[in-house]
Write a protein that binds this DNA or RNA. Structure first.
Lengths: 279, 279
DNA sequence: AAAAACTCTCATACAGGTTGAGAGTTTTAG
DNA sequence: CTAAAACTCTCAACCTGTATGAGAGTTTTT
């Protein structure tokens, strides 16, 4: 080692960086060794070059790309740095907003899984208080009860595309459901009305957002769409037998949907529900 | 197109995903087309497969890796999903903490640049109120005024390594500085005392953190370390001439450091300062 | 002078795709 | 029915910011 000159390994060590990273930076011209032995091709650095390397690491910590860093270092233009930083600031904010959504979605999913494990067995009928909910919904264009799962899938796709088109976070797309008018339900006709996804309070307000009021609901649990007609019937019968007055529209809510068990069918856990009033 | 079957392009379109991504998912076994024409090798999907694709996209939105998603889908174990989600939750939180630091650092840097542009010309002497500051500092092991920039660089490196060793965010490493005892300054001896980086209030408390009190400071601006001795002398002379009583230790503060203009020297903007009391 | 430690170049791998070439297949228009 | 348009196939390369490793050469230490 010549006086004042640092080998690549030394330079790497004092800067807490790897040797290969230094070689990469040399290659792309971010920071070139101040001397290269013409015979051995060994790279040698001067300790003064730390300043530049610090700057590189600092900009990297700010989340800038190597390309941008190079550009900035080459131009020597503080205006350019600033504009990149301002852009970056926005990026970071977006990322944070995104992570917040993710976090909320993860929590919801974990809760959903817990509920799945603790949920009553298929066919159980309960009378429960359900807090108010917000939904993002669209009217169904076809009554999918008549046409089967394919049509339902299509409607769901459209709902999803609508989310995308309005630039809304798709991450909510997990707890979905459909509604049916009270009248249809009471008359035993299966006529889909709306399809929706549940959203939480942070969801941006928009035209398609509705609120489902809190209240007492009579519910029945099941695990397949195929069984919906039969279980809806049971639900209605139960209401009549027990003299509950149906007070609002019928909802078929997907509590948990983990299609991990089967490739073709939605692995589901559903709760059919109607709000009731006590006379 | 056969009835009920979707070509890869159609499947891609209704799921807002690219054709090549679908091919990739096929290749890694995430989702296989339900039918492949044995002659043309064209992939065909069933609309029911949307369920699985939805799940994949949902998990992706949760920040899971494709590998993890595959694992989960193959195992069909909700416990596994949950453990991955819990791990992921922690990751997301860490990332957010990181982004918060980044955001603060970016803001500081933008401010720093603004200050740089608006700063007085070299040699200007000012008397200003400076709010209190927090620093992360280490005593200098050698008086680098005697040995020059290389030694300073080394000290700075050690400070940085100390940050890393204590697992502290390196992102603060931008506004650095050194201090000198009041007595040394008054006697015109250049003797370095401490080297530091400025940190903000969110910085984790630790043994090396000190507070520099707010107050009135006499300051002189310059743009190179090399000029420090001369400008420190001028600062002292100014204090004496104007009968300001030096009330504390001397600080050499790096306001802006953008070594974009030169490979070898720190492109700097410095402010030498001493707190003063009015008699 | 030998051994240990270091460095060189070149190649490969990672994730999660995107892009493109060149060939073959299906659908549509006339 | 045929030609053109649109689609799809495979295979390969590219992106970022490194990490890892092979095999050869160089420097430092013993």
């Amino acid at each position: 080692m010549k006086n004042e000159l640092l080998s690549i390994g030394e330079m790497a060590k004092i800067n807490n960086i790897s040797v290969s990273t230094l070689r990469l930076y040399d290659e792309i011209g971010l920071i070139k060794p101040c001397y290269i032995d013409s015979e051995s091709r060994y790279r040698y650095y001067n300790i003064r070059q730390n300043a530049r390397l610090d700057m590189i690491q600092y900009m990297k910590a700010l989340g800038m790309e190597l390309k941008e860093i190079k550009e900035v270092l080459e131009s020597g233009d503080t205006k350019l740095i600033e504009s990149i930083l301002i852009r970056r600031k926005k990026q970071v904010k977006d990322q944070m907003a995104n992570l917040n959504l993710q976090l909320a979605a993860i929590s919801r999913t974990i809760e959903s899984l817990e509920r799945y494990r603790k949920s009553p067995s298929i066919g159980t009928i309960t009378i429960e208080y359900i807090p108010h909910r917000k939904i993002y919904s669209m009217p169904t264009s076809i009554n999918f009860y008549e046409y089967g799962i394919e049509v339902y899938e299509n409607e769901l796709k459209e709902l999803k595309n609508s989310l995308i088109k309005h630039n809304l976070p798709q991450i909510y797309y997990c707890n979905a459901g459909t509604t049916m008018k009270k009248e249809s339900f009471l008359e035993g006709r299966l006529e889909s009305d709306e399809i929706f996804v549940l959203v939480d309070d942070e969801f941006p307000q928009s035209g398609n957002i509705k609120r489902i009021e809190s209240g007492m609901y009579v519910c029945i649990y099941l695990d397949s769409f195929d069984d919906e007609p039969e279980y809806a019937k049971r639900l209605l019968e139960y209401c009549i037998e027990n003299d509950y007055k149906v007070a609002g529209d019928y909802i078929c809510e997907v509590l948990t949907e983990f299609s991990v068990f089967d490739d073709e069918k939605r692995g589901m856990f559903l709760r059919l529900q109607v709000p009731v009033a006590f006379r």
